[in-house]
C-alpha cells in the first residue's frame, strides 16, 4: 500500500540562516588550524575567536549558537576540527586543559548575538551601532574566560588564581581580535549580510 507524506519545505529565510551557520561552523574549524606565529616565546596568534565573533554578529543568538554547536558536535563526532586537527569528546572535556574555551565559544556566540540583536531574528550587521558591537563582543570574550578558567582549574586541579594567571597573557590578544572584528564590520565588508 502506498503511503502519502507531504514534503514540509524549509522556508527561504531559514535556509539562508542555516547555510550561514553551517559555513561559519566550517570557518571556525578552518581558523582553528591557522595561526600567525609571533616572535620570541609569545604564543601563536590564533584566529579561532573570529568564528564566535562573526557567528554572534551575523546570525544572532539562535543561529550563532547553532553554528558553534555544529562546530563542537562535528569535533565530538571525530572530524579533525579542533586546533591542530584534534577531535573527540576527550578533547572537549580535557583538551590541554582548555576544553572549557570550546564551550565558552558556543556560549559566547549566543551572548554576543543576544546583546547585539536583542531578538532571535538577526538584524543586518550595518544596523548595529559600534558601542553595541563592542559590548556584545567584550561580553563574549568575558564569557569565554568565565567558563574556560574555572574549567581549566577543575581539569588540572590548579587553584583558580593560578589557572587565571596561566591564561592572562592571552587576554590582550583576544581584545586585539575583538578590535579587528569591529574594524571589519565598520569597514563595510559585511554590508548587506
Amino acid at each position: 500500500m502506498a503511503t502519502e507524506q507531504s514534503v514540509d519545505l524549509v522556508d527561504d529565510e531559514t535556509v539562508g540562516l542555516f547555510t550561514k551557520a553551517v559555513l561559519l561552523a566550517a570557518l571556525t574549524a578552518a581558523l582553528a588550524q591557522i595561526s600567525i606565529p609571533l616572535p620570541g616565546t609569545l604564543p601563536p596568534f590564533s584566529l579561532q575567536p573570529f568564528g564566535m565573533f562573526f557567528a554572534g554578529l551575523l546570525l544572532g543568538p539562535l543561529w550563532g549558537g547553532v553554528a558553534l554547536l555544529l562546530y563542537v558536535l562535528v569535533g565530538i563526532a571525530g572530524a579533525p576540527v579542533f586546533s591542530n586537527g584534534a577531535a573527540g569528546i576527550g578533547y572537549v572535556i580535557a583538551g590541554k586543559g582548555t576544553g572549557g574555551f570550546l564551550v565558552g565559544f558556543l556560549v559566547g556566540a549566543v551572548v554576543a548575538g543576544a546583546i547585539a540583536h536583542r531578538s532571535i531574528a538577526p538584524k543586518p550587521v550595518a544596523d548595529l551601532s559600534v558601542p553595541v558591537q563592542v559590548v556584545a563582543l567584550v561580553a563574549a570574550v568575558a564569557i569565554v574566560y568565565a567558563i574556560g578558567i574555572p574549567w581549566l582549574a577543575v581539569v588540572t586541579g590548579l587553584p583558580f588564581a593560578r589557572a587565571a594567571a596561566t591564561m592572562a597573557p592571552f587576554i590582550p590578544f583576544d581584545l586585539l581580535k575583538l578590535g579587528i572584528a569591529i574594524a571589519i564590520v565598520q569597514g563595510g565588508y559585511l554590508a548587506g549580510r
Binding site: L27, A30, L31, I34, I36, F45, L47, F50, F54, L176, K177, I180, A181, A183, I184, G187, Y189, L190
Partner: peptide, 10 residues
C-alpha cells in the same frame, strides 16, 4: 595581517 586573513576568508 589578521584583518586581511579574517576578512578575505569570511
Amino acid at each position: 595581517r589578521a584583518r586581511l586573513l579574517a576578512v578575505r576568508s569570511l
